[in-house]
Simulated assay, not measured.
Amino acid sequence: MKYYILFLLILISAQSYAQEQFTVYFDSNKFELNPKENTKFTAWILENTKNKIVAVHGFTDEDGTNGFNDTLAGKRVDFIFNAVKNQIKIREDYKSRSFGESFEQSDNKADNRRVIIYYILEKDLARENEILGIKKEIVEKKPKSVIVYPEKLVFENPNGTKSEFKLDTAFMKKIGEAEAGEKLKIENLNFVINTFAVVNESRGKMYELLLVLQKNPDLKIEIQGHLCCMPVDRTDLSTQRAKAIYNFLVHNEIQKERLSYKGFGSSQPIFALPEKDEQERAANRRVEILIVEN
């Protein structure tokens, strides 16, 4: 997910939004804390284990060369970071800055030899990006091009005869435009009783699904099989039926990475078992397509 920074120096200002800050001070030319400051720092760590650090900035006084002070400020930042990295949560895009002596110096040199830790309290973490002035980049989703599906398919059989399948273009369009998480039932997809063989009259339904996948290369689906009547799917028939559709699609060069299958037996009936009539049994005995990605 992409983000952009609205305010470049948001982490520097102590007044920025609801950020908190904690400061420790160093002895001259030192990048480790003296016992007094270390005790204060350790106590702060113990009190803030559920908060989150967003930045650490290091400073020095003006004694010494610019290069020496820049290095010293960096070492002070590293010392603090190493002390807290396994104790307190740190933002993934954590920012450290070593100012050295390049800032407005206080007349009191001891005040300049410091590291400031910027952090967010646990109670404010839900507003973390808002506090930091970070907003999600709004990416407009480009509309899909209109796909025209054929109304029928004609095949020439090995014996020279022809088979024609009328296709449900409305159903194919519905699958092609479905959002991730949607589930659609394949109507009139029937199997030979107690087998996973699709009856000839239903072969067109498999070609409908094949055509949709061919014309929508980003589409990923899970094929889900369901049974009626039997509380226990002893032969795992629901999985075998889902796999039969999966195998048909793979055989017709749909990448395996775009497909998965699963059998649920009678664990997710539309109508409670035992069903009252054939209409309820037919509703429970179904194959559904779960849109995984589109």
Rank of each mutant, 00 (worst) to 15 (best):
N34Y: 06
I131S: 03
V232R: 07
E122Q: 06
L249V: 09
F7Y: 12
F79I: 06
M172Q: 07
C228F: 04
N66V: 14
A272I: 07
Q15V: 08
V24W: 02
S202P: 00
M172F: 06
K75Q: 12
A170T: 13
Y149V: 09
E164K: 10
F271M: 08
G74C: 03
D27K: 11
Y246H: 14
L211Q: 12
K185S: 04
R127M: 06
N194S: 15
E278V: 12
D63V: 11
K136Y: 09
Y25S: 14
L153F: 13
I270Y: 15
N159S: 11
L33T: 03
L125F: 14
L189K: 13
E101L: 15
M172H: 08
A242Y: 05
K141Y: 05
H226R: 11
F191V: 03
E253T: 06
S96M: 10
Y94W: 13
D168V: 01
I291F: 01
S202F: 01
I245S: 10
F81N: 13
S163E: 15
N34T: 03
I120T: 12
D93Y: 13
Y119E: 01
F68H: 14
P143V: 05
I245L: 12
D277V: 08
V115K: 00
S202T: 01
P158Q: 10
Y207W: 03
P143F: 05
I270K: 15
Y4A: 01
R281G: 10
S202I: 00
D93S: 14
Y3K: 11
Q19K: 14
Q87R: 12
A282L: 14
N66L: 13
D27T: 10
L273A: 09
K220S: 11
I175S: 03
Y261D: 10
S13T: 11
F7C: 10
Q279A: 15
L273G: 06
I223E: 12
E293P: 00
V250W: 03
L249A: 10
F271Y: 15
V146R: 09
Y246K: 01
R281M: 13
P158F: 08
K135V: 06
N108V: 15
E208G: 06
R241T: 14
N66D: 08
C229I: 04
E201H: 02
R285E: 15
A18R: 12
A14M: 09
P35E: 11
F248Y: 02
L33M: 02
N190I: 07
S98T: 12
I116E: 06
N48A: 03
E37T: 06
K205C: 04
L6R: 11
E253I: 00
S96Y: 11
R127D: 14
A110P: 02
L72P: 07
E122H: 01
S238L: 05
L210V: 01
T60D: 07
A83L: 03
K52D: 09
I138G: 02
N252D: 05
K36V: 08
E20I: 03
I138V: 09
K166Y: 06
G181S: 07
E92C: 05
E140L: 05
G176R: 03
L9E: 13
K243N: 09
D111F: 14
G265E: 01
V139C: 00
H251K: 10
F31N: 15
I193Y: 13
Y246M: 00
S266Y: 02
K185C: 06
